[in-house]
Design a protein around this nucleic acid. Structure first.
Lengths: 203, 203, 203, 203
DNA sequence: CATGAATGAGAATTCATTCAT
DNA sequence: TATGAATGAATTCTCATTCAT
């Protein structure tokens, strides 16, 4: 009985070990090229153990994505844009978003990379999930813009396309600074891009 | 030494057959999930034949990308923005670009999809090539913006970030309309996005 | 040394639980496809526990067969054919055997099925046991026939082959009505087969 | 072109090699315990080759059964019982059937064994096929009996149950002489069983 | 040039069994 | 006595690649 407690802890520890190892390896080699053997190797357990915790590669990846989504969404919801009343507020909020994003990249960069990569991968089993997430973010940006317009701060832009554009712009900035060119630092480019966009829509 | 003319033509025909089949299958199942067997099956030849023309999967994919890059670059170079002198010219050019892009998607959508997908795929052997291409396009957009600013038509934006943003925005629009949501038509969303962006930077 | 009474009872209970679960699962999926995990799952205990009671799958199956053999033999010995003196006695005895068999199928059908299946399975570790059992039954039938002939009730048949045939006939009837065709009821076909055979050998 | 012919022959040879090896190994270890590795080892090819010819173990076994069924049925249809007019004819036919069966066992004993074993195996994917075959044989025996009764040669037995019994009897005789007791020769027991049965039903 | 049979190196998955608690 | 996490060997199946014809 007391045994159960210890076993539960051990179980959870192994599970975290596997998830951590999977995140690392997926981030390194990508979903398709990663093998179960890679994951268990990195986690320091044997093949059989993997199947005590996850049904297959798809399953462990799915769990990783879920975890990230929860994390990201709760982070985004913290941005309260309803308090934005002046041009200064708007620019400040843009800066706050930039800081959040840069921070986020530092702590959850690998997650982010996986998310973006799978969204783009042809035939991926996870595109649906990734799409839904992207749509959520775009709508949030749209709400920010609509609020700014209502407040008389912003130009009367086509909210839908501008929100979509902003999302694409951010993704591209993240991609360039994180995945592509190691000489471009996220903390340098992300705030610049966000400020650029924030100013473009300002009256 | 001198191969007969007929043989050369036959050889080229088989090669095209294989490239065409590969484009189709890659576009359908993605690079990673596509097997040589899929390709030769679609091309109507046998396994052995494949290796008479290409070293391996990586090789044939590389050739496809090269072909597309040539095509795309020659298309872009047609856009002569030096003639842009007035606000009207600028907006007209934006529309022309939109038309080109929509057209391009229709004729080379599969190519485009592969290109974008591989650029994003972690561990892809083709990221370098895709990155170089993206950089080329971003720089071209940057030149357009610089020209517009020099002409006194556009706001004095941070050219680098705005070019990057515009590229990201377009990619996102393409992604949504072509790969993700079948209810969104490229010919509807692409022009809207481009016009939005074009107007945002206008004085 | 002296295990407490309570512990002994608990031990026996778990053992019965496992045997019962094993019978059920074996009857359902067959010996080869049944896993230890299936058995402990059905018994509501854990993997480790299994090995406290049985050496392996072979061992628990063997114990099941032993149990059944004891049961079946004691049932068969109840049939006292020495009292058979007239044609009527003979037919009555046949009916009694039929009733016993139908009854037996109802209560121990799963056992029976396993027994028959393993006897037929190539490479089974239990064929010896099953064969011995079959031989016992055939000899018992042979004794019945010999008695009938001695009494002048039956035709002078080749006892050995007819006994073997009768056994085969019964097995086939059981197989058809229990394992194969759910529309054939044992209580309908078994008595008919037995009566047919009983009459065929009668003078 | 001429190549195709040679390839076709090679292909067929390998296929036969695999089927032959499979029959041998299945007959030796039984369906469940046989691995693909066993089969390819016996056939002298590699694992991959197996999958060029058969989808999986189930598939190759199925093909074996089909082949046997064809063989067996064509053999049985040769027995023309309509010519049976006298008691002597009837007994002669019984002898002919016995000879056929003994012969059949010699040449196709392994097939037979597999067929019988799978019919009895719980959860077998081939029970349906085996059942259908058994039913076919039982009906054929039934037709023989009906004919004999119509001719006035046989007692008015319950044809259905006697046919079923005869089938069971034969199966048991085959089982004992072929699979179980190596001291019992099929050519000794099979004719005896058949003659016993043939006489029992005679008027 | 083209064929297509064969290879063999992995990858995924299952499962009996052990062992520390 | 019971637990259940962990093991690792065994098995199925896939696929890029080679090579004799």
């Amino acid at each position: 009985m007391a045994r159960t407690r210890a076993a539960e802890i051990a179980r959870e520890a192994t599970r975290r070990e596997l998830l951590g190892a999977a995140l690392e390896v997926f981030g390194d080699k990508g979903y398709a090229s990663t093998t179960i053997s890679d994951i268990v190797g990195a986690a320091g357990v044997t093949q059989g153990t993997f199947y005590l915790y996850f049904k297959n590669k798809e399953n462990i990846f799915s769990e990783l994505l879920n975890e990230y989504r929860t994390l990201m969404i709760s982070g985004l919801l913290n941005t309260d844009f309803t308090a934005v009343k002046t041009r200064k507020d708007w620019l400040k909020m843009a800066d706050r978003v930039a800081v959040f994003l840069v921070d986020h990249i530092e702590t959850h960069g690998t997650f982010m990379r996986l998310f973006i990569a799978e969204a783009e991968t042809i035939g991926s089993k996870f595109s649906e999930e990734s799409y839904a997430f992207a749509d959520g973010v775009i709508q949030e940006i749209g709400r920010m813009l609509s609020h700014g317009i209502r407040m008389g701060l912003l130009r009367k832009v086509d909210v839908e396309t501008v929100a979509l554009s902003a999302f694409g712009a951010l993704k591209e900035a993240v991609r360039q600074s994180c995945f592509q060119d190691p000489s471009i630092e996220p903390e340098e480019i992300i705030p610049r891009v966000i400020r650029s966009l924030a100013r473009l829509v300002l009256k």
